[in-house]
């Protein structure tokens, strides 16, 4: 029981992070029909920037958090403006190669800037771990889950309550019609990129204290985030959250009770299963074109 609880805690913590990354994928897909293969690198840049700011520059956690997320969002905007909007033939195969290229480029850049070593930073607050039925629960884990849920709730309100959020949704449904009623669809695409990469940064920031971030952490996290998004239903906010937690917990239990070599394979096996058998995800938000 104690062992199970321990794995469950670690699963929920990782799950919250996958959920935030998955939200980033989903929000972008919902507004632009695009999947950003470089999304994981924005998570990496978020984590590394956070470490640099808090450890090397000694900025307090709250301001460092905000600076990082805003900074990475701006990087996302620049990326959209320079690499996505300039594409002459925006077919999936072209955009896949461009975003994969961006991912490799950003990873290489990360290696130059931060070196090949792992970095460390202290937890947001210095509470001792809680003891629940013999299992240890880190204070940082509570931060991670709380922030993940808060972020999802804020986005939910943003889409439901604000005009901009509704406009973005309208663009997602029909770009041309949205343009006809006066919604600037290009601006919405830009905004979606900013939001999505900002989500990536949030994930990077909250994971930084518990994961020893390094330049090559991004692709694995990105892929797992995508897997979570697919699991819950790409394009659905709460589906992504659900998918994230589900993946985190399954992965932790797999490691705990089957084999540690299985950790990374779990996500990809799940990804393939979802793609093959239920491409709409557990909560169907989109229909995959399979003709």
């Amino acid at each position: 029981m104690q062992e199970f609880l321990q794995y469950l805690f670690s699963g929920i913590t990782n799950g919250a992070i996958y959920a935030v990354i998955a939200i980033g994928f989903s929000m972008l897909y919902r507004s632009t029909d695009l999947i950003n293969f470089a999304h994981g690198e924005f998570v990496m840049i978020g984590a590394m920037t956070m470490v640099t700011l808090t450890v090397a520059v000694q900025v307090p956690v709250m301001p460092a958090f905000i600076i990082t997320v805003v900074g990475v969002s701006i990087l996302g905007l620049v990326f959209e403006r320079m690499a996505i909007r300039t594409v002459r033939r925006p077919e999936p195969i072209v955009l896949i190669i461009i975003t994969v290229g961006a991912s490799i480029f950003l990873r290489g850049l990360g290696m130059l800037v931060w070196g090949k070593d792992s970095h460390t930073m202290p937890a947001f607050t210095a509470h001792p771990p809680l003891d629940i039925a013999g299992a240890r629960l880190l204070a940082q884990s509570i931060w991670i889950v709380a922030i993940a849920i808060a972020v999802a709730a804020c986005l939910h309100l943003f889409y439901k309550r604000t005009l901009t959020g509704k406009a973005m949704h309208a663009c997602a449904i029909n770009k041309q019609a949205a343009w006809l009623v006066g919604i600037p669809s290009k601006l919405m695409t830009l905004l979606a990129f900013g939001l999505s990469t900002g989500m990536g940064a949030v994930a990077g920031v909250i994971i930084a204290p518990i994961t020893m971030p390094a330049y090559d952490m991004g692709s694995m996290l990105g892929l797992k985030g995508f897997c979570a998004a697919m699991l819950g239903g790409l394009g659905s906010l709460w589906g992504s959250v659900l998918g994230g937690f589900l993946l985190g917990i399954l992965e932790a239990l797999g490691v705990g009770f089957v084999s540690s070599g299985l950790k990374d394979a779990t996500a990809f096996l799940l990804l393939l299963l979802v793609l093959y058998f239920r491409p709409g995800g557990l909560i169907s938000a989109v229909k995959v074109k399979r003709f």
């Binding site: 896949i96 892929l223 990809f268 990804l271 491409p279 074109k289 399979r290």
Partner: peptide, 18 residues
Amino acid sequence: LRLTGYYLGMGTLGFGMI
């Protein structure tokens, strides 16, 4: 190969990773 576009990209990527 029943998948298209981004899904095919992710599917082949997942396979390669495994």
